[in-house]
Measured scan of single mutants.
Amino acid sequence: VTTYKLVINGKTLKGETTTKAVDAETAEKAFKQYANDNGVDGVWTYDDATKTFTVTEMV
C-alpha cells in the first residue's frame, strides 16, 4: 500500500489531499471521484516519481 497525493488547482477549490491505495490506478479512481464530488473538472497529470496526481481546471 502506497500513499498518493492529489494537488487540486481548481477555479474555486485549491488544495491537497492524500489517499492510500494498492496502485496508482486505484488512487486515480478515488481522486477522480473526490474531484467529481467537489465539482472539479480539469486536466489530469501524474508524476510517478513523487506519486502525485494534479488536476488543473482551465479558466
Rank of each mutant, 00 (worst) to 15 (best):
D23T: 05
A24N: 06
Y46F: 05
T50I: 07
A27C: 02
A24P: 11
E16K: 06
A21Q: 05
M58H: 13
A27M: 01
G10Y: 08
V40A: 03
A21K: 03
D47M: 04
E25V: 11
A35Q: 02
V40M: 06
K51Y: 12
D41P: 04
E57D: 09
E16L: 09
D41M: 11
K5C: 06
A24K: 14
Y4N: 00
V59D: 11
D48Q: 12
N38G: 04
K51L: 11
G15F: 14
T45N: 09
K11Y: 11
K32E: 03
T19Y: 13
V59P: 10
A24G: 04
A21T: 05
G39H: 09
F53A: 01
F31D: 00
L6N: 01
G10E: 03
K5E: 03
A27L: 01
V7H: 05
T12C: 12
E28P: 00
D48W: 06
K51H: 13
T26Q: 12
T26K: 06
T26C: 06
V43L: 13
K5R: 11
T3M: 11
T2K: 07
A30Y: 14
V55E: 00
A35I: 07
A27K: 00
T12D: 14
E28K: 15
G39T: 04
D41T: 15
A35C: 10
T52S: 04
D23H: 04
E25A: 13
T2D: 09
A24Y: 13
T56W: 09
Y46M: 02
T3H: 06
A21W: 03
T50H: 05
Y46R: 02
G42Q: 02
D41Q: 13
V55P: 00
E57Y: 09
V1A: 12
K14L: 07
T52P: 00
T19A: 09
N36G: 09
L6E: 00
W44K: 00
W44I: 03
N38E: 08
T17Y: 15
V1R: 06
I8F: 09
T26A: 11
N36R: 14
A21G: 04
T12N: 14
A27P: 01
V1T: 15
T18W: 13
V55L: 11
T52F: 02
T2S: 11
T45Y: 07
G10V: 15
G39Q: 08
A35R: 01
K11N: 10
A24L: 14
F31G: 00
D23G: 04
D23I: 03
N36S: 11
D23Y: 04
D23P: 01
N38Q: 14
K51A: 06
T3V: 12
V22I: 14
F53V: 01
G39L: 06
T50M: 06
V55N: 01
L6F: 06
A30W: 15
